[in-house]
Computed example of a mutant assay.
Amino acid sequence: MSANQSSSNPSAPAHQQHDLIVFARYPELGKVKTRLAAGVGPERALQVYRRLLAHTQAVTTDLPARKWLWLAEAGPTADQSDPWVGYQRRPQPPGDLGHRMQSAFSHAFAEGATAAVIIGTDCPGLTHEHLRDAYEALRTHEVVLGPATDGGYYLLGMKKVWPELFANKRWSTDSVRADTLADARRLGLQVHLLPELRDVDTADDLRAWETAEKRGS
């Protein structure tokens, strides 16, 4: 069954609590987008990061979901002035990315979520429609994945915590998506894939984004 057909699912709970989890860090020179900074310098990387934060806020503003902002530890020069209106803030716990994401999902479900989606702040191609489609797909699928062109993913959604999806991953490598999908297959989970999008992590990614903007795409 496609995501567009799922709204008539008679087994769907009467009350749906959709949660959105955003992983981010406060803007801070030399501490954000370090891979990008290696190619364009820390000042330019900070400027790009602020644009990505603004984009993430814009596409989630009208999303009918309870919103959680999980923040990395701030450094002494971090700009903490952005209010992130509509978000409840939480500190990211210690541990690798998988442990931190699993903790955030577990918190959302403990707070009553029936479907939760996590995103970062690296994807300028992310739209409100992608997020809406993710929640719609979770009516009929256990997992939703937004594949990134670098072999990772820009979005992960689920209706309960599957610890295997967060374990034994080489985070920030091109094997993350394939390993996650392989785990989902072993668990017998139905996975809905969103369109593939490009994160902005390197100077090449930034050039591709700027070129697409000039072309109006």
Rank of each mutant, 00 (worst) to 15 (best):
D183Y: 05
G75I: 12
Q47C: 14
W70N: 15
L126G: 06
L36T: 02
D133P: 07
G75Q: 04
R177C: 11
Q80F: 01
R185T: 14
L52T: 14
M1R: 14
D174N: 13
A208T: 11
L131C: 03
D79M: 04
V85N: 13
L52R: 15
R215V: 02
S6W: 07
Q47R: 11
M158F: 01
T127D: 08
E213S: 13
D133G: 06
R90Y: 11
R198P: 03
H128S: 13
P10V: 03
A113T: 09
D150G: 11
G86Q: 10
D62T: 13
A137D: 04
H18V: 02
P195E: 01
S81H: 10
A38F: 02
Y49N: 09
Q88C: 06
V59W: 10
P27L: 01
K31Q: 14
A116Q: 08
G98K: 07
T121P: 13
R51K: 15
S175C: 05
S106Q: 10
V144N: 04
L155K: 00
R100G: 10
E73P: 07
T114P: 12
W171V: 04
D204H: 09
L187F: 10
K33N: 08
S103P: 11
Q92Y: 01
E43A: 15
D205L: 03
D199L: 04
T56K: 10
A54G: 14
G157H: 06
S8E: 13
G95A: 01
P93W: 02
Y26I: 03
M158I: 00
V161I: 03
P76L: 04
A212P: 12
H192D: 12
E73M: 01
R100I: 02
D150H: 12
T56V: 00
T77C: 07
T140N: 15
H128T: 13
A178R: 03
A113S: 15
R44Q: 14
A113C: 11
Q47P: 07
S2H: 14
K31H: 13
T173E: 15
D183M: 12
H55E: 05
L206T: 01
A72E: 15
L187A: 10
D201K: 05
A45E: 07
S2T: 15
A116N: 08
C123G: 04
L189G: 06
Q5R: 14
E210W: 09
A37S: 15
T77G: 02
T114I: 07
S217H: 13
R198D: 04
Q102H: 02
L206H: 00
T60Q: 01
A167Q: 15
V85M: 07
V200E: 08
R170M: 05
E129L: 09
P195C: 01
H130C: 04
D79Q: 08
I118Y: 00
H107L: 12
R90V: 06
E136V: 12
Q102C: 03
W70R: 13
V85Y: 03
T77S: 09
L20F: 03
K160F: 00
A3G: 05
P93R: 02
F109A: 11
A38D: 14
Q92G: 11
